[in-house]
Amino acid sequence: MGRGLGEARSGRGRPVTHEAVVLEGPGTWRLERQATEDPESGEVRCRVDAAGICGSDRELFDGNRPPGYVRYPVTPGHEWAGTVEAVGSGVDPALVGRKVVAEGFRNCQTCERCRCGETSLCTAAYDETGFTRPGAFAAYVTVPARLLHLLDDEADLRAAALLEPAAVVASAVMKGAPRTAERIAVVGGGTLGLLAVQLLAAYTPGELALIEPRQQRAQQGRQFGATGHLHPSEAETQAGRFDLVVETAGAARSAALAIALTRRGGRVALTGIPAPGAQGVDPVALAMQQTTVYGVFGAPSAAWSYAVRAFGSGVLDPAPLITHELPLSAYDKAVSLVGSGDPGVGKVLLRP
Protein backbone atom coordinates (compact mmCIF):
# COMPACT_ATOMS: atom_id res chain seq x y z
CA MET A 1 0.00 0.00 0.00
CA GLY A 2 1.54 3.33 -0.97
CA ARG A 3 2.06 6.20 1.39
CA GLY A 4 -1.07 8.29 1.74
CA LEU A 5 -3.42 5.52 0.63
CA GLY A 6 -5.80 3.70 2.91
CA GLU A 7 -6.93 6.74 4.87
CA ALA A 8 -9.89 9.08 4.69
CA ARG A 9 -9.49 12.82 5.14
CA SER A 10 -11.76 15.67 6.04
CA GLY A 11 -12.24 18.60 3.76
CA ARG A 12 -9.46 20.43 5.61
CA GLY A 13 -7.02 17.62 5.03
CA ARG A 14 -7.19 16.24 8.57
CA PRO A 15 -7.12 12.40 8.61
CA VAL A 16 -10.42 11.03 9.85
CA THR A 17 -9.66 7.31 9.67
CA HIS A 18 -6.65 5.18 8.94
CA GLU A 19 -5.72 1.52 8.63
CA ALA A 20 -4.09 -0.43 11.44
CA VAL A 21 -3.17 -4.04 12.12
CA VAL A 22 -5.05 -5.42 15.14
CA LEU A 23 -3.75 -8.65 16.65
CA GLU A 24 -6.70 -10.08 18.58
CA GLY A 25 -4.65 -12.90 20.04
CA PRO A 26 -1.99 -15.35 18.90
CA GLY A 27 -2.38 -15.94 15.17
CA THR A 28 -5.63 -13.98 14.86
CA TRP A 29 -5.45 -10.57 13.23
CA ARG A 30 -7.29 -8.18 10.97
CA LEU A 31 -6.61 -4.98 9.08
CA GLU A 32 -8.99 -2.47 10.61
CA ARG A 33 -10.02 1.07 9.78
CA GLN A 34 -9.78 3.17 12.93
CA ALA A 35 -10.67 6.72 13.85
CA THR A 36 -7.63 8.99 13.75
CA GLU A 37 -7.77 10.71 17.13
CA ASP A 38 -6.18 14.02 18.04
CA PRO A 39 -3.26 13.64 20.44
CA GLU A 40 -3.93 14.37 24.10
CA SER A 41 -1.95 16.67 26.36
CA GLY A 42 1.76 15.91 26.16
CA GLU A 43 1.35 13.62 23.14
CA VAL A 44 2.17 13.73 19.43
CA ARG A 45 0.57 11.92 16.53
CA CYS A 46 3.07 10.70 13.95
CA ARG A 47 2.58 9.46 10.42
CA VAL A 48 4.46 6.16 10.22
CA ASP A 49 6.81 5.88 7.26
CA ALA A 50 8.27 2.46 8.09
CA ALA A 51 8.05 -0.06 10.92
CA GLY A 52 10.41 -2.96 11.49
CA ILE A 53 9.53 -6.49 12.56
CA CYS A 54 11.74 -8.28 15.07
CA GLY A 55 11.75 -11.56 16.94
CA SER A 56 9.56 -10.20 19.72
CA ASP A 57 6.89 -9.36 17.13
CA ARG A 58 7.05 -12.97 15.99
CA GLU A 59 6.62 -14.04 19.63
CA LEU A 60 3.60 -11.76 19.88
CA PHE A 61 2.03 -13.35 16.80
CA ASP A 62 2.84 -16.91 17.87
CA GLY A 63 1.70 -16.37 21.47
CA ASN A 64 5.12 -17.08 22.99
CA ARG A 65 5.63 -13.73 24.68
CA PRO A 66 5.32 -13.88 28.51
CA PRO A 67 1.83 -12.77 29.64
CA GLY A 68 3.15 -9.81 31.61
CA TYR A 69 4.69 -8.34 28.47
CA VAL A 70 1.67 -8.18 26.16
CA ARG A 71 -1.91 -6.99 26.28
CA TYR A 72 -4.16 -8.39 23.55
CA PRO A 73 -5.81 -7.07 21.45
CA VAL A 74 -2.95 -4.85 20.35
CA THR A 75 -1.57 -3.07 17.32
CA PRO A 76 2.06 -4.25 17.26
CA GLY A 77 5.05 -2.23 16.11
CA HIS A 78 7.77 -0.86 18.39
CA GLU A 79 10.47 -0.23 15.76
CA TRP A 80 9.43 2.70 13.61
CA ALA A 81 10.23 6.09 12.15
CA GLY A 82 7.92 8.79 10.91
CA THR A 83 6.92 12.44 10.87
CA VAL A 84 5.08 14.44 13.51
CA GLU A 85 1.72 15.50 12.11
CA ALA A 86 -0.11 16.86 15.17
CA VAL A 87 0.69 17.80 18.76
CA GLY A 88 -1.39 17.90 21.91
CA SER A 89 -1.58 20.74 24.40
CA GLY A 90 1.67 21.55 26.14
CA VAL A 91 3.78 20.28 23.22
CA ASP A 92 5.91 22.60 21.11
CA PRO A 93 4.03 23.10 17.79
CA ALA A 94 7.40 23.46 16.06
CA LEU A 95 7.63 19.67 16.19
CA VAL A 96 5.02 19.39 13.43
CA GLY A 97 6.77 18.27 10.27
CA ARG A 98 9.87 16.92 12.04
CA LYS A 99 11.19 13.46 11.30
CA VAL A 100 11.40 11.39 14.47
CA VAL A 101 11.81 8.07 16.20
CA ALA A 102 10.58 7.36 19.71
CA GLU A 103 11.47 5.21 22.69
CA GLY A 104 9.04 2.39 23.30
CA PHE A 105 9.21 2.01 27.08
CA ARG A 106 6.65 4.27 28.79
CA ASN A 107 8.94 4.86 31.77
CA CYS A 108 7.46 6.59 34.81
CA GLN A 109 10.25 9.21 35.23
CA THR A 110 9.73 9.20 39.00
CA CYS A 111 11.09 5.89 40.35
CA GLU A 112 14.66 5.65 41.61
CA ARG A 113 15.94 3.92 38.45
CA CYS A 114 14.38 6.51 36.16
CA ARG A 115 15.76 9.38 38.23
CA CYS A 116 19.20 7.78 37.95
CA GLY A 117 18.84 7.81 34.16
CA GLU A 118 18.28 4.06 33.86
CA THR A 119 14.90 4.42 32.17
CA SER A 120 14.89 0.88 30.76
CA LEU A 121 14.98 -0.38 34.37
CA CYS A 122 11.86 1.55 35.40
CA THR A 123 10.27 -0.20 38.37
CA ALA A 124 6.72 0.76 37.41
CA ALA A 125 4.52 -1.80 35.66
CA TYR A 126 5.78 -2.78 32.21
CA ASP A 127 4.28 -0.56 29.52
CA GLU A 128 5.58 -0.40 25.94
CA THR A 129 4.40 0.83 22.58
CA GLY A 130 3.45 -2.11 20.38
CA PHE A 131 2.95 -4.55 23.26
CA THR A 132 0.67 -2.94 25.85
CA ARG A 133 -0.10 0.24 23.85
CA PRO A 134 -1.04 0.68 20.18
CA GLY A 135 2.07 0.48 18.04
CA ALA A 136 3.25 1.44 14.59
CA PHE A 137 1.84 -1.30 12.36
CA ALA A 138 -0.60 1.42 11.35
CA ALA A 139 -0.66 4.61 9.33
CA TYR A 140 -0.37 6.65 12.55
CA VAL A 141 0.99 6.13 16.04
CA THR A 142 0.51 8.37 19.06
CA VAL A 143 3.22 8.58 21.73
CA PRO A 144 4.28 10.89 24.57
CA ALA A 145 6.31 13.77 23.16
CA ARG A 146 8.94 13.28 25.86
CA LEU A 147 9.94 9.98 24.22
CA LEU A 148 10.77 11.51 20.83
CA HIS A 149 14.24 11.74 19.34
CA LEU A 150 14.56 14.20 16.47
CA LEU A 151 16.20 13.26 13.19
CA ASP A 152 17.82 15.43 10.56
CA ASP A 153 15.50 16.75 7.87
CA GLU A 154 17.27 14.65 5.23
CA ALA A 155 17.18 11.43 7.26
CA ASP A 156 16.20 8.19 5.51
CA LEU A 157 13.14 7.10 7.47
CA ARG A 158 13.36 3.52 6.14
CA ALA A 159 16.78 3.17 7.71
CA ALA A 160 15.71 5.10 10.81
CA ALA A 161 13.11 2.43 11.55
CA LEU A 162 16.05 0.31 12.71
CA LEU A 163 17.10 2.80 15.38
CA GLU A 164 15.22 0.86 18.06
CA PRO A 165 17.45 -2.23 17.71
CA ALA A 166 20.38 0.13 17.22
CA ALA A 167 19.60 1.70 20.60
CA VAL A 168 19.66 -1.76 22.21
CA VAL A 169 23.07 -2.37 20.68
CA ALA A 170 24.19 1.09 21.75
CA SER A 171 23.23 0.19 25.31
CA ALA A 172 25.39 -2.95 25.11
CA VAL A 173 28.32 -1.00 23.66
CA MET A 174 28.06 1.70 26.33
CA LYS A 175 28.07 -0.92 29.09
CA GLY A 176 30.92 -2.84 27.51
CA ALA A 177 33.04 0.34 27.18
CA PRO A 178 35.23 -0.74 24.22
CA ARG A 179 38.72 0.69 24.00
CA THR A 180 40.92 1.31 20.99
CA ALA A 181 43.07 -1.69 19.98
CA GLU A 182 41.11 -4.19 22.11
CA ARG A 183 40.19 -7.61 20.81
CA ILE A 184 36.40 -7.67 20.44
CA ALA A 185 33.96 -10.34 19.28
CA VAL A 186 30.29 -10.20 18.31
CA VAL A 187 28.32 -13.44 18.66
CA GLY A 188 25.50 -13.48 16.10
CA GLY A 189 25.16 -11.85 12.68
CA GLY A 190 21.49 -10.89 12.71
CA THR A 191 20.23 -7.32 12.82
CA LEU A 192 21.59 -6.66 16.32
CA GLY A 193 24.92 -8.29 15.57
CA LEU A 194 25.57 -6.39 12.34
CA LEU A 195 24.56 -3.10 13.95
CA ALA A 196 26.96 -3.94 16.80
CA VAL A 197 29.77 -4.51 14.30
CA GLN A 198 29.19 -1.05 12.84
CA LEU A 199 29.26 0.69 16.21
CA LEU A 200 32.23 -1.28 17.55
CA ALA A 201 34.28 -0.74 14.38
CA ALA A 202 34.15 2.99 15.12
CA TYR A 203 36.34 2.36 18.20
CA THR A 204 39.19 1.04 16.00
CA PRO A 205 39.58 -2.32 17.74
CA GLY A 206 42.74 -4.32 17.19
CA GLU A 207 40.51 -7.22 16.20
CA LEU A 208 36.77 -7.42 15.57
CA ALA A 209 35.56 -10.98 15.03
CA LEU A 210 32.03 -11.94 14.01
CA ILE A 211 30.85 -15.36 15.21
CA GLU A 212 28.18 -16.37 12.70
CA PRO A 213 27.38 -19.58 10.76
CA ARG A 214 25.86 -17.91 7.67
CA GLN A 215 28.41 -16.92 5.04
CA GLN A 216 26.21 -14.17 3.61
CA ARG A 217 25.93 -12.47 7.02
CA ALA A 218 29.64 -12.98 7.67
CA GLN A 219 30.48 -11.23 4.40
CA GLN A 220 28.19 -8.35 5.30
CA GLY A 221 29.89 -8.14 8.69
CA ARG A 222 33.23 -7.66 6.96
CA GLN A 223 31.73 -4.87 4.89
CA PHE A 224 30.64 -3.21 8.12
CA GLY A 225 34.08 -3.41 9.72
CA ALA A 226 34.61 -6.92 11.09
CA THR A 227 38.23 -8.01 10.66
CA GLY A 228 37.48 -11.72 10.82
CA HIS A 229 34.78 -14.38 10.93
CA LEU A 230 34.42 -17.63 12.81
CA HIS A 231 31.77 -20.33 12.57
CA PRO A 232 30.37 -21.07 16.05
CA SER A 233 31.83 -24.60 15.84
CA GLU A 234 35.28 -23.07 15.42
CA ALA A 235 34.90 -20.30 17.98
CA GLU A 236 35.70 -22.43 21.01
CA THR A 237 39.31 -22.62 19.80
CA GLN A 238 39.46 -18.88 20.62
CA ALA A 239 38.43 -19.29 24.26
CA GLY A 240 39.84 -16.65 26.56
CA ARG A 241 41.01 -14.43 23.69
CA PHE A 242 38.73 -11.39 23.70
CA ASP A 243 38.62 -8.31 25.93
CA LEU A 244 34.96 -7.64 25.14
CA VAL A 245 32.27 -9.90 23.70
CA VAL A 246 28.83 -8.66 22.66
CA GLU A 247 26.30 -11.49 22.37
CA THR A 248 23.30 -10.85 20.11
CA ALA A 249 22.23 -14.29 18.86
CA GLY A 250 19.88 -15.41 21.63
CA ALA A 251 20.63 -19.04 20.78
CA ALA A 252 20.73 -21.90 23.27
CA ARG A 253 24.54 -21.80 23.61
CA SER A 254 25.40 -18.25 22.62
CA ALA A 255 25.62 -16.75 26.13
CA ALA A 256 27.85 -19.56 27.35
CA LEU A 257 30.00 -19.23 24.22
CA ALA A 258 30.32 -15.46 24.69
CA ILE A 259 31.57 -15.91 28.23
CA ALA A 260 33.97 -18.66 27.19
CA LEU A 261 35.49 -16.38 24.55
CA THR A 262 36.24 -13.67 27.09
CA ARG A 263 39.68 -13.33 28.66
CA ARG A 264 40.21 -13.34 32.42
CA GLY A 265 38.85 -10.04 33.72
CA GLY A 266 37.06 -9.33 30.45
CA ARG A 267 33.56 -7.99 29.78
CA VAL A 268 30.48 -9.54 28.22
CA ALA A 269 27.24 -7.83 27.16
CA LEU A 270 24.28 -10.18 26.62
CA THR A 271 21.48 -8.83 24.41
CA GLY A 272 19.93 -12.03 23.04
CA ILE A 273 16.99 -13.65 24.83
CA PRO A 274 17.02 -17.43 24.27
CA ALA A 275 14.11 -19.80 24.55
CA PRO A 276 13.70 -21.76 27.80
CA GLY A 277 16.27 -24.48 28.25
CA ALA A 278 19.33 -22.53 27.13
CA GLN A 279 22.74 -23.66 28.33
CA GLY A 280 23.51 -22.21 31.75
CA VAL A 281 26.57 -20.30 32.89
CA ASP A 282 28.95 -21.68 35.51
CA PRO A 283 29.02 -19.18 38.42
CA VAL A 284 32.31 -20.64 39.69
CA ALA A 285 33.96 -19.92 36.35
CA LEU A 286 32.59 -16.37 36.39
CA ALA A 287 34.03 -15.79 39.84
CA MET A 288 37.41 -17.38 39.13
CA GLN A 289 37.77 -15.62 35.78
CA GLN A 290 36.51 -12.34 37.30
CA THR A 291 34.31 -11.79 34.26
CA THR A 292 32.00 -8.79 34.18
CA VAL A 293 28.64 -9.68 32.60
CA TYR A 294 26.08 -7.06 31.59
CA GLY A 295 22.48 -7.86 30.70
CA VAL A 296 20.67 -5.69 28.16
CA PHE A 297 16.89 -5.50 27.71
CA GLY A 298 15.62 -2.50 25.80
CA ALA A 299 17.55 0.74 25.92
CA PRO A 300 17.70 3.76 28.24
CA SER A 301 17.27 7.27 26.86
CA ALA A 302 21.04 7.81 26.76
CA ALA A 303 21.50 4.82 24.44
CA TRP A 304 18.78 6.14 22.15
CA SER A 305 20.57 9.48 21.97
CA TYR A 306 23.83 7.71 21.18
CA ALA A 307 22.26 5.64 18.39
CA VAL A 308 20.54 8.66 16.85
CA ARG A 309 23.82 10.63 16.87
CA ALA A 310 25.68 7.72 15.30
CA PHE A 311 23.00 7.47 12.62
CA GLY A 312 23.02 11.21 11.92
CA SER A 313 26.81 11.29 11.60
CA GLY A 314 26.95 8.32 9.24
CA VAL A 315 28.79 6.03 11.69
CA LEU A 316 25.70 3.82 11.73
CA ASP A 317 24.04 2.87 8.43
CA PRO A 318 21.20 0.38 8.91
CA ALA A 319 19.83 0.64 5.35
CA PRO A 320 21.83 -2.30 3.90
CA LEU A 321 20.19 -4.63 6.42
CA ILE A 322 16.72 -4.12 4.89
CA THR A 323 15.73 -6.93 2.53
CA HIS A 324 11.90 -6.85 2.45
CA GLU A 325 9.29 -4.08 2.46
CA LEU A 326 5.63 -5.04 2.58
CA PRO A 327 2.26 -3.30 3.05
CA LEU A 328 0.16 -3.61 6.20
CA SER A 329 -2.12 -6.04 4.40
CA ALA A 330 0.79 -8.51 4.25
CA TYR A 331 1.42 -8.43 7.99
CA ASP A 332 1.17 -12.20 8.43
CA LYS A 333 3.54 -12.83 5.52
CA ALA A 334 6.00 -10.31 6.92
CA VAL A 335 5.94 -11.97 10.34
CA SER A 336 6.46 -15.41 8.79
CA LEU A 337 9.64 -14.18 7.10
CA VAL A 338 11.16 -13.24 10.46
CA GLY A 339 12.78 -16.26 12.03
CA SER A 340 12.17 -18.37 8.93
CA GLY A 341 15.83 -19.31 8.75
CA ASP A 342 16.09 -18.08 5.16
CA PRO A 343 19.59 -16.54 4.87
CA GLY A 344 18.21 -14.08 2.35
CA VAL A 345 15.90 -12.49 4.92
CA GLY A 346 17.37 -9.54 6.76
CA LYS A 347 15.28 -6.75 8.21
CA VAL A 348 11.63 -6.83 7.20
CA LEU A 349 9.69 -3.56 7.12
CA LEU A 350 6.00 -2.76 6.95
CA ARG A 351 5.27 0.39 4.94
CA PRO A 352 1.83 1.82 5.80
Rank of each mutant, 00 (worst) to 15 (best):
E212W: 11
Q215C: 02
Q216W: 01
Q216Y: 00
G221F: 10
R222T: 09
H229L: 00
H231S: 09
E234P: 11
A235I: 07
A235N: 09
T248G: 14
A251H: 09
A251S: 08
A252L: 15
R253W: 11
S254Y: 07
A255Q: 13
A260D: 14
R264Y: 12
G265T: 10
R267E: 05
L270T: 06
L270C: 07
I273S: 12
P276Q: 05
G277Q: 10
G277C: 10
A278K: 11
A278G: 13
Q279P: 01
V281F: 02
D282S: 12
A285Y: 01
Q289F: 04
Q290V: 09
T291R: 10
T291E: 05
T292Q: 09
V296G: 03
F297R: 13
F297W: 13
A302Y: 04
A302M: 02
A307E: 00
V308P: 09
A310I: 14
A310C: 14
A310T: 13
F311A: 06
S313R: 15
S313P: 00
G314M: 09
G314P: 01
P320W: 12
L321K: 04
L326V: 11
P327K: 06
Y331R: 04
D332W: 02
V335S: 09
V335H: 06
S340P: 10
P343N: 06
